[in-house]
Nucleic acid binder design. Structure first.
Lengths: 223, 223
DNA sequence: TTCATATGAATGAATG
DNA sequence: CATTCATTCATATGAA
């Protein structure tokens, strides 16, 4: 059941405390952020799925697609997907980049954890940065670097005049519509989801009823 | 958008703590439970919607992307004659992830070979999977879990950085573990839905790609 | 707006 | 297990 309201939780990890104030869960901004994002993402997903479903059923008419009339005007999805995208991706400052680049060129191909820590400390003098940022940066840098080489010349440092046609698709393995955006995720606070969830439950039931009228099993894929 | 209800957040049920002290993010077990439940509900809804969508699209269009279910499990695509964009990397379905996560959280580290086998069997009920997948997953999960711990932080929830939340114009901070100390209350193992979300995101994207099929591959070609 | 690309981040798999 | 690699996803940015 969804929102049964209370029902004593705490079964979470085993803290098993009561409502004692002295034993509350303290969430850090980071953790809170995680939850927000997750909820936001789910909400968005549901929104889009319903949207998609609407389009499909409407297109096919038949199955009383309009059954979901309420769905259309549902407050939840009343507003299209927005992107309040909070700060998420780290962007190295020029200074940091310079330093990173030089370090990368220095040859130390193996950043190792210790190094990472040091580098992070140093770079933090020029802007916000975390160890993972550094770690990722090196990982990406190397991978990208290597890939470039491969793309340039399949062989090694020997011949660069290859004509391997099969290797060319490495550059842009971008299939027709592989790309898709629209997963904002990012909420500024934890709002009330209960109502929304209930709405969805209702809609879901109806939707299922609908699709079941024509389709019977979910034999997905077939090949 | 998700929660237009911008007003006050954390209005979950408002009891015990009360939002009076929202200065620090404090959540009671109840509130935590509510969040968990809500996320779980979203997960369920999404799953069902995806299923439903699969069923619907399955009969009205065929496209080459039946990878919706999270697993295009079609190891025998060799017969076709073409590489239908075969993906070698296993992608856990939400169900599998849930199960894996819960197992992981159950403590028992490194599930023995035998365990792996069992788990694999069980998980194969929810999609293609192999023992090595399970094995790797646990390995990675643990390693990364630990790494994350390294970057954990909180310590001073006393009075400090809590202002610059909008400073993301240039070099903005990254909500990663920038600080490092010891968890005060101990909520380290709070969230675990992260991975699941990513899965859903992917599924959804693919689903969309499918239903909007029309174009073929207008690959940029060029080079 | 839409498309394309650069790049930070996530993660399955491989190696020691 | 600990690290590293490879591939992919997601997002920010700039061009068309």
């Amino acid at each position: 059941e969804v929102g049964e309201g209370r029902g004593r939780g705490a079964g979470v990890e085993g803290e098993g405390v009561g409502e004692g104030l002295l034993y509350v869960k303290v969430m850090t901004d980071e953790q809170l952020e995680v939850l927000r994002r997750q909820i936001a993402v789910y909400a968005t997903i549901c929104e889009q799925l319903v949207e998609m479903h609407k389009a499909i059923t409407a297109h096919h008419d038949s199955l009383a697609g309009m059954r979901l009339g309420g769905l259309y005007g549902d407050p939840l999805m009343a507003s299209g997907g927005h992107k309040i995208t909070a700060r998420q991706r780290w962007t190295p400052t020029t200074m940091q980049l310079q330093i990173l680049e030089s370090m990368f060129n220095q040859g130390n191909g193996t950043p190792s954890k210790q190094k990472i820590k040091e580098i992070t400390i140093e770079l933090s003098q020029h802007g916000q940065i975390s160890e993972s940022n550094v770690y990722n940066w090196f990982q990406n840098r190397r991978a990208r670097s290597k890939r470039k080489q491969m793309a340039s010349f399949p062989s090694n440092t020997e011949s660069e005049v290859e004509a391997d046609e099969e290797c060319m698709n490495e550059k842009k393995p971008k299939p027709d519509g592989s790309h898709h955006e629209g997963m904002p995720a990012g909420v500024n606070n934890l709002p009330m989801y209960d109502a929304q969830l209930h709405s969805f439950e209702r809609e879901l039931s109806q939707a299922q009823g609908i699709h079941r009228s024509s389709e019977s099993s979910k034999s997905s894929s077939g090949s």
